[in-house]
């Protein structure tokens, strides 16, 4: 009897010791704590958190996960929330969280400093989320592969349906990626529903893979695994700056965009600090961090400097993207189901 008991006790003690540092670090709470769920690249999450810690003295614990995973986590934790602020990630899941009453209403005093598209996001969600950056949709192609195949450089959406791109286009699967759904919604708005599906069917023959992650096609184009990758342009810029032989295209017919958003989680344990972070993250100096962290989205604060490499909205034909209609769950299910039945199921 004595040995298993001793073993149990030892295991118990070891576990306790393991938990101690965590317990200890939770103390000493003068300016308080904050837990941030971050859904942009780690490279950008970290300096943001550090800058906020320096500015306020609040101790921040940050988790980085994709927006889909974060949404799942917030939903699962709804009865007993662990996080305070959800910062970054494409706007749709933020809107969905607002729709499902998972996030809290907050009107920041900095609202007046923001671009219209950012405040419109807030109004549509009854002030439960707000835009912090925007990025246009488009595609990038690998120049080395293009010259090797002697194909004329594509400039429009329509080019992607041409037969010379057979098996050379990569795009994410709208079932798993917000980026791909933005593309569907964009094409439907640019071309109209029926022509858009005709185009998608034609392009389907050229698609070599529907990836699961939205940023994957940009990477594949950068390494030459595919010739064309459809993504948000800022993802492609990141690859280009890393030295990849890619050229970035904002399609000539016009294109849609995402609004990266931020929300405060309903029932946040550190509500005061969450609001402090919210206000700070909307300021020009906080948004200036993006450019130094290899993230080339457009900041939502009108006074924030735009990174020189960022694809500027002035040079892109942006459509008037109807986030309220295309962000709703019913419309999304309808479009994706139709895409699955008529496009994905088709022969290549």
């Amino acid at each position: 009897m004595s040995t298993p008991r001793r073993l149990l006790a030892t295991g118990f003690a070891v576990t306790l010791t393991a938990l101690l540092p965590a317990a200890a670090s939770a103390q000493g709470t003068n300016p308080g704590n904050l837990t941030v769920y971050c859904s942009v690249q780690e490279e950008w999450c970290r300096p943001m958190v550090q800058a906020f810690e320096r500015a306020t003295g609040v101790r921040v614990a940050m988790t980085r996960k994709s927006s889909g995973e974060t949404m799942t986590q917030i939903r699962a934790e709804a009865a007993n929330p662990r996080g305070d602020v959800w910062w970054g990630g494409t706007g749709d899941p933020h809107m969905q969280a607002a729709e499902e009453n998972l996030t809290a209403e907050y009107r920041s005093p900095r609202m007046s400093e923001l671009h219209d598209w950012a405040t419109r996001q807030a109004e549509q969600s009854r002030f439960r989320t707000i835009g912090i950056y925007a990025g246009a949709l488009g595609y990038s192609y690998n120049t080395t592969e293009l010259t090797r195949r002697r194909i004329a450089a594509p400039t429009c959406w329509a080019d992607l349906a041409k037969p010379e791109f057979r098996g050379e286009i990569q795009v994410a699967d709208p079932n798993t990626s917000g980026t791909a759904y933005t593309m569907l919604a964009t094409l439907l708005q640019v071309m109209g529903e029926e022509p858009a599906f005709d185009f998608l069917k034609a392009m389907h023959r050229n698609v070599n893979q529907y990836t699961r992650s939205g940023a994957a096609p940009a990477r594949a184009a950068a390494t030459g695994e595919t010739l064309v990758g459809i993504t948000f342009l800022h993802d492609a810029v990141t690859q280009k700056i890393a030295g990849a032989p890619v050229e970035i295209v904002a399609p000539c017919e016009g294109t849609g965009y995402e609004i990266g958003s931020m929300s405060i989680i309903r029932g946040a344990r550190n509500m005061e600090n969450a609001q402090r972070f919210y206000d700070w993250a909307l300021s020009a100096e906080a948004q200036a961090i993006a450019g130094t962290a290899n993230s080339f989205q457009l900041p939502s604060n009108r006074n924030a400097p735009i990174p020189p490499q960022a694809p500027r909205f002035e040079n892109i034909r942006l459509i008037d993207y109807d986030f309220a209609r295309w962000g709703s769950a019913a419309e999304r299910t309808r479009v994706i189901t139709r895409w699955e039945r008529e496009v994905r199921a088709g022969a290549r």
């Binding site: 889909g68 799942t72 709208p174 079932n175 791909a180 699961r212 299910t333």
Partner: peptide, 13 residues
């Protein structure tokens, strides 16, 4: 396994 993951964490929850 991947189908399950994306049924939970994907765009269509």
């Amino acid at each position: 396994s991947t189908r399950i993951f994306f049924a939970i964490a994907g765009a269509r929850h």
